[in-house]
Design a protein around this nucleic acid. Structure first.
Lengths: 197, 197
DNA sequence: ACCTGAACACCGTTCAAGT
DNA sequence: ACCTGAACACCGTTCAAGT
């Protein structure tokens, strides 16, 4: 890549980050190009679709979340690791309002630039879920796609101004459904897990 | 209203119903006016905002859901009434893809044409929830807004093609979190309720 | 190689001009 | 009273013309 091209690429990505943080994933691409001091057509060659731009933007978050899954898997109890990871997933998604819808559609569209990353995220979640299921602290009638869907729906709720204040509480409600098929609360699950050790 | 105006109004509403069923709540208003054989400005006078059009379109569903709540309250056990009503709420929302986002924002925006209807829906849900809470078959740490949010998030999941096939299962997962704080499954809640009678 | 301005076909919104 | 066509300021996408 030529040095001027690289400079434009970096400027676009930086501006896209701030604009999409401000206005959401459906922000005007024209506006992004304008604020980056670059022709609109230049943006389109670097990022042929909106999803390609989102992918470049989210790559950092995706890599971080994947690493975090490994970290939690090594250091924490299966149930805690699962819950903590989901919490971070939702927090990351919240940074870019509306992005979770793109991630959902990308999941079943192999053509989407976001497809590979979303499948990777789902795999990471599935691994944490399986560990908790094997330990008996997560219900066994859900799979990684269900987990992805529930996390996505909570992230979506976080994007709704009327609901955002309650999303932490709703997270604990949904978590209680995921953890411990017997239906105990998170703390109870932790107790059960500790007692078993 | 003049008879020609009434005719245009009805034509617009009928066409909007089919177009929004096909293309979702963000369908082109120009397209709706075109297919109704009416000038675009005419659509805007009858329905000054997209939300006003949605409100007129959803009024039928809202009235139906309100009546259904009364019906279920009279005829069914609190827990069953709650779950059945939520199921129908989600099915109705599913008819117009993307409409649930408008309902969420309308909930806290008194200016929105959808505001009153959404508040009414929330009230109906709150009533059914309170009955189940009083009976001991629904967890007591959630309120009507939480219920609205959870139902809305499930409706949103139903709009995602990748998730739609699993939405019935996810509904049962979330329901299990709403019902019976002890966390038993729906059938167990029903058993508990029956035993108490 | 890479960039850009202009053109294209859309969109929602407004309003003067018609009946 | 009610309707309409045209104008306006946007949008994403494409492409010939520039360096």
């Amino acid at each position: 890549m030529r040095t001027d091209a690289k400079k434009n690429y970096n400027a676009l990505l930086a501006v896209a980050g701030t604009v999409i943080t401000e206005q959401g994933a459906d922000a005007s691409l024209r506006d992004i190009a304008r604020r980056a001091g670059v022709g609109l057509a230049t943006l389109f060659r670097h990022f042929p679709t909106r999803e390609a731009l989102l992918e470049a933007l989210l790559r950092v978050n995706f890599d971080q979340m994947t690493a975090r899954a490994d970290e939690l898997e090594a250091a924490t109890s299966p149930a805690d690791a699962l819950v903590l990871w989901l919490e971070e997933f939702i927090a990351h998604a919240h940074q870019y309002r509306g992005v979770v819808a793109s991630m959902m559609t990308a999941l079943e569209d192999p053509q989407s630039p976001l497809h590979a990353s979303c499948v990777t995220m789902r795999s990471a979640g599935t691994r944490l879920l399986s560990r908790a299921q094997a330990e008996g602290t997560a219900r066994t009638d859900i799979d990684g796609t269900d987990l992805f869907a529930l996390a996505g729906s909570l992230a979506w709720l976080g994007d709704q101004p009327a609901i955002a204040p309650r999303v932490d509480h709703l997270f604990s409600v949904v978590s209680s459904a995921i953890l411990t098929p017997a239906g105990n609360r998170t703390t109870a699950a932790r107790t059960a897990s500790r007692d078993r050790d």
